[in-house]
Design a protein around this nucleic acid. Sequence first.
DNA 1: TAGATTGTTAATCGATTAACAATC
DNA 2: TAGATTGTTAATCGATTAACAATC
Lengths: 207, 207
Amino acid sequence: MKEKKLTIPTLKRLPLYYNIAIRALARGENYISSAFIAEKLDIDATQVRKDIATIGYVGKPKVGFDTKEFSTHLETFLGFSKERNIILIGAGNLGIALAKYDGFTQYGLQIKAIFDKDSRKIGMKILDKEVISVSEMKNFIVKNNIQIAVLTIPAQFAQEVADELVSVGIKAIWNFAPVNLDLPKDVICWNQDLAASFITFVQLLKD
Amino acid sequence: MKEKKLTIPTLKRLPLYYNIAIRALARGENYISSAFIAEKLDIDATQVRKDIATIGYVGKPKVGFDTKEFSTHLETFLGFSKERNIILIGAGNLGIALAKYDGFTQYGLQIKAIFDKDSRKIGMKILDKEVISVSEMKNFIVKNNIQIAVLTIPAQFAQEVADELVSVGIKAIWNFAPVNLDLPKDVICWNQDLAASFITFVQLLKD
DNA sequence: TAGATTGTTAATCGATTAACAATC
DNA sequence: TAGATTGTTAATCGATTAACAATC
């Protein structure tokens, strides 16, 4: 029941457990074992049990983890029902793809606005959201109490925009620009450099 | 000079070093130190030197690493000049965004074709590439000796498409679908589940 | 030369895996 | 009950960090 310290590796695995759990639930499986999850993810079953213990969920010895209960526990723990107000900066291809991506909404991600500096894009509709001029960004953040920003702009503008975001109290940045941002320690930055990720991936073909 | 074993953590950092090096080069800085790189990435300078030693590049004690030489060494090591023939499966928002993304071309990524099963999308042009029916996918892979596939299709179709890919000799899959694929051990799979990544990211806001 | 930075070995830290008792 | 699976402690493994000699 007591929660231990969560590490990043554990935090990365939890959403994967969730995916497996809801799929098992959809198939009508009432219980899943740590060995089953481990096999799917090609990791150790002890790892799985330890992670699950860390978030305070307990299984039934001999039976496994109650699929429904476990899924719900993960939903609560990971905060899916908690609405996350987010803004997206950069209405390029990637920004538009993310704005349209339906994989996010089920996790409570609510994109409140999309900003761009290109006047030709201002007013454009992406699903139900309009592209707004970056000149209105700071005001919008303050007014709507936004805490999370997604950066899908070219690398050369990323730092200056990040500085603006920080100046109005943004607490977390999901950064798709291929650059490491210089930020105050209390601002969380999550880098998602797809090109860098691709390069790492193809290196694995070497051996 | 001798190359030691490359670990995944090291492989993930190398592209970041490259980004920093080319930017320093553009600013006209002839040398960069491990301390400089470390500070940018908020990691330990020893780590940086160790990684660099691993890929067989040597710096100058007292001076640092020759920016131009180091960049070139990384380009060669990471194989940017080696053309990678790739196909993309799934012409949805994310697939189109990746197909248009210019961040890849400089690293040798060549998208040879885009496949989709939606007849309304077949024939659509994305930059200079046409969307082709998945029914032609296997033939295309064999004829063009494709080794790498990018999967940007819904989770429920990912496994069957992956099986098809494997059956015609695909060696590596960059998987954006939120599902863990069941593949032969010799096929490399790199999962890029953006929704899962987002969930992990927002957990960091908890403390 | 003196000082700064690399290269590398040793120490530490943390994550993964093994072993096994507890449990239903 | 016997067997299967959890929960957890101990052992291992690997990655990061500290220390410092080598070098220009």
